[in-house]
Amino acid sequence: MRVRPTHRTGGAIALTLAAAVVLSGCVASTPETAVTPTTEAASTPSPEATPTGPILRPGEAAAANRQFFDLINTKYHDANGQGAGRSIVDNLVANGFSKQDMEVTPDSTAIGLAADSIVVSVRIKGECLLGQFTPDNYVSSIEPLLGTGGCLVGKTRTIDW
Rank of each mutant, 00 (worst) to 15 (best):
Y76L: 05
H77A: 08
H77R: 14
D78C: 10
A79R: 15
N80R: 15
G81K: 06
Q82W: 01
Q82R: 13
G83L: 05
A84F: 06
A84I: 03
A84V: 08
G85Q: 04
G85Y: 07
G85N: 05
G85R: 00
R86Y: 10
I88S: 03
I88L: 11
I88V: 06
I88H: 02
V89L: 05
V89Q: 03
D90L: 10
D90F: 09
D90N: 13
D90W: 08
N91C: 12
N91W: 11
A94V: 02
A94L: 07
A94C: 03
A94R: 10
A94D: 09
N95C: 11
N95E: 09
G96A: 02
F97L: 12
F97T: 03
S98Y: 05
S98F: 06
K99Q: 14
Q100Y: 09
Q100G: 07
Q100V: 00
M102C: 05
M102Q: 04
V104N: 00
V104S: 00
T105P: 00
T105K: 06
T105E: 00
P106I: 11
P106F: 13
D107V: 14
D107K: 15
D107A: 15
D107Y: 14
S108G: 09
T109C: 14
T109H: 15
A110P: 08
A110S: 15
I111H: 08
L113S: 12
L113C: 05
L113K: 13
A115I: 10
A115Y: 03
S117M: 08
S117E: 15
S117D: 15
I118G: 00
I118L: 00
I118W: 02
I118K: 01
V119N: 01
V119T: 11
